[in-house]
Design a protein around this nucleic acid. Structure first.
Length: 114
RNA sequence: CCAGAUUAUCGGUCGAUCGCAUGCUCUAAUAAGAGUAUGAGGAAAGUCCGGGCAGCAAAGGGAAGGGCAGUCGCUAACGGCGACCGGGCGUGAGCCUAGGGAAAGUGCCACAGAGACAAUACCGCCUGGAUCAACCCAGGUAAGGGUGAAAAGAGCGGGGUAAGAGCCCGCAGUAUUCCGCAGUGAUACGGAAUUGGAGGUAAACCCUGCCUGCUGCAAGGAGAUGGAUUCUCAAGGCCUAAAGCCUUAAGCGUCCCGCUCGUAAGGAUUCAUCAUUUAAUCCGCUUGAUCUUGAAGGCAACUUCAAGGCUAGAUAGAUGAUCGACUAGAACAGAACCCGGCUUACGGAUAAUCUGGCUUU
RNA sequence: GCGGAUGUGGCGGAAUGGUAGACGCGCUAGCUUCAGGAGCUAGUGGGCUUUAUGCUCGUGGAGGUUCAAGUCCUCUCAUCCGCA
């Protein structure tokens, strides 16, 4: 789990990132990122629709795994970015942790964040 | 040993590394760091019921609407639970059961059938016209056949008749009432009297009895002080007058009433000063119809008493990630104001009590 | 979290407790045309086969009430909507 500083708070801050961000899309995952000058650290949110999987347990597990990949690589992240990951498939709950790490880091590299 | 029935408990553990939230303490000084303690469920789920709590002026009575339905109990309450009664299923342990009222009234009963409920004679049987027979016509007949889910709807034997029929009788049986006895009671057992009567459906309207206001934590609340305007401010008494107190009336009480009861001080708008800046933040928020153990009462649901405990409180949402071992890439699954139930999902493990069958002693 | 609605052929959408599938779109065949479209006529309605006046399944699913359920009752599943 990420620290409180590296998570979003409130509703309008997410809306700001949705309006000003750029999107990179992968097969089962997409990243919307925006450089926020008013902050001192990066922020991350993971968005999983109820249509992806109806079980709250599975959705919680996907969010926690993506948070964990970012936490273990937090030193590599440059700049004060707002990051929003959107999930499009429930396979992310079952794939191995190395595959997930490759997927998430691939998106970050294409966005030129790490 | 095999096959079952019921109930209860558990539902990953250990180790290593890296993390998160809250409380407390210290450093520190408004932003962090260190230490320490605690951190999802039996269903947290579905949101199907019931309550607490909050707001709507929320006491009372009534109407409409809604709900419930064997009896007795339990409970804060319930459509829940327990015990018992009746009915059904099973060899049995046990399981299932919306189980008031159809002579209060209304509606409906398709198709088929002659006739579908104060309705009916199609075939058959019998009598007559009418006579040897057939056909036909009129009448009698609900025993037999046919139609249908259901046909005057409960059988057997005898009498009776033109033919028949509870038309009459006996037995069996049904229903109702009364008595005795057991029980708080539903009811059970025994006895007596009456009963020959036109169905089903109330998870159709309805009747009877009982219960019930609406909205939901996204409820609801959140600065202080002073001033002005306006709405409702009636009558009488005490008093020189004001203030204050008392009595009565009107008004209001979100469907109706205003007999009872409540209600007198508040509401709305606006100005000034400081405080505050917006889907944020704080309160509500977790000590409660609470949990554990023991004792007592009760068949039980449950209740009472004593001692001890504090056991999630997040807010884009904490309780996790990776690796290894166990014996197997553990099932269903994530608190969101809080409780009591119900229902549904669930790989497996353990324990207790009981039933049937087989074998051995 | 709280509240509410819907579910019927391939699609849309009717049906008072009484033969399920009206009607429209579609699909198939025929007529018309040089050809296609449009139009007109008839048929088909899920599955199976013997191609029929056949058998069987069927109103999201499972039970119940009833002689009889798409309709009434209970539970359940899926989809959709509203509330700061």
């Amino acid at each position: 789990m990420l620290a409180r500083n590296n998570r979003f708070h409130g509703y309008s801050s997410l809306n700001w990132a949705y309006r000003h961000g750029e999107t990179i899309r992968d097969h089962k995952l997409s990243l919307k990122y925006a450089n926020n000058q008013r902050r001192h650290t990066y922020r991350v949110a993971v968005v999983i629709s109820r249509k992806v999987n109806k079980s709250a347990v599975v959705r919680n597990r996907i969010r926690r795994r993506i948070y964990e990949v970012l936490r273990s690589n937090s030193d590599a992240i440059k700049g004060n970015y707002d990051l929003i990951f959107s999930v499009y498939g429930d396979e992310l709950a079952d794939i191995s942790s190395k595959e997930l790490e490759v997927m998430v880091k691939g998106l970050l590299k294409r966005a030129n964040i790490i």
